[in-house]
Design a binder for these strands. Structure first.
Lengths: 233, 233
DNA sequence: CAGTGGTCTAGACCACTAT
DNA sequence: TAGTGGTCTAGACCACTGG
């Protein structure tokens, strides 16, 4: 673990343990430097990390303050803001509908940057949040990168397996969001009516070296869909 | 303009002018350092900025590469990714429905962190994208911060006025997203049917010193609603 | 004006990639 | 193993806030 990551964690824990609220002041830079016995740049780096995560905000000439919104039960749309941690709180489960190796659709081949004859793992599953259907998910994994999948893996967290099991480094993602009406098939899986609202998200996940490895199409249940984004301007 | 901001701009222009595509390689750090005659940290800072904006990605041991998705016509949900620039391309106009000074609702007072007897500017307007209704927006501005508004200002960009006209420094925002069905009133403003899908977004905008100054409730037309997010993991 | 965060430097050393 | 980006330091100087 890098120094600045460690410091960021410690500060986050400190906020949690002391139940600090929006606007509460943290120790000044000088104190943090001496407490952790690192240089100013390292503390600054840690604080930048926390700032993009939406945990703190810094005011020049004044201090470092806690940033914490008051609403509960929202899922973060940005993975760098603790996507996993959020989901853990919510008890996410999955039911697998389909898993096979196949040739990609034109769309999937385009987004994964592969040829029509390259193999992909196709995964279709419904995900549940505290027992209620949250979303219908169709994913295409580039098989030359994600070399193996089975039912057990995809019932749990695919991303944990990809990072811990396969040792791949996930780098960044592009997400495209649309609002639309549910088709009859989608409504069936989500326990809703045809024509009801849906949030439809297409995501392309890349490794740190820029290679796309996962193209996913996710249809969210509008009743369960509460998301938040903390942005820095 | 700070050095690292300037360098970031130059690099972005370079990518634009040379029409670089996803995966194209940029000059190495050493070259950028000597070209701009700055230290390594400053170039690094500029590149970090571009990385969070989703413009480049860096691979240790390999190089700096352009990150650019292929889809056109999507609006970025993150303002640090050039929200304004995107909107400029799209010709956004507004029709004002209501503008007055009043007492806040309980909800607005809570989110703006003010008392029930403090004054707010209330703004209700429909925003159009290339002539089509994009969203219905209701905003509450803390009048002790945003001291003056008129019809002309809110027909144009309120945020330009707040930053340039009033000299306020906008810092960060919290956004809460829901999917739901349009009410009859909303449908009327957006030219849709009651019960049609909507994206509903509540935003709280803060100054750099952490003070909330704008609480906005925005209902998006689902037909026009194409958004994207570029995330770093 | 004292205190606080922000920028920038020059350089050492480390970790990863490609060949 | 040469080349590339990432971390970290120590310190100078700048910009802003608040009493």
């Amino acid at each position: 673990m890098l120094k600045y990551q460690h410091i960021a964690e410690e500060i986050e824990n400190y906020i949690e343990e002391h139940k600090l609220q929006q606007g509460d002041k943290l120790p000044v830079l000088q104190d943090l430097m001496s407490q952790f016995e690192v240089s100013k740049s390292t503390v600054t780096k840690a604080l930048e990390l926390l700032e993009t995560k939406g945990v703190v905000f810094q005011v020049r000439g004044s201090g470092i303050f806690v940033r914490r919104h008051k609403r509960k039960g929202y899922i973060s749309l940005l993975s760098n803001q603790g996507f996993k941690k959020n989901l853990e709180e919510f008890q996410i489960t999955s039911k697998v509908i389909q898993l096979d190796v196949r040739k990609p659709t034109t769309e999937a081949a385009l987004n994964l940057n592969i040829g029509p004859d390259d193999d992909v793992y196709y995964v279709k599953r419904v995900r549940y949040i505290q027992g209620q259907p949250l979303c219908l998910e169709e994913s295409y994994f580039n098989k030359s990168i994600v070399t193996y999948l089975n039912n057990e893996i995809i019932t749990e967290s695919i991303f944990n397996y990809i990072t811990d099991g396969l040792g791949l480094n996930v780098g960044f993602s592009d997400m495209f969001l649309h609002i639309d009406k549910l088709t009859e098939e989608e409504a069936g899986y989500l326990g809703l009516e045809k024509g009801d609202p849906k949030l439809y998200v297409e995501s392309i996940f890349h490794l740190t070296n820029g290679q796309p490895f996962d193209f996913s199409k996710v249809t969210y249940n509008y009743v369960q869909s509460q998301f938040f984004i903390q942005a820095v301007i």
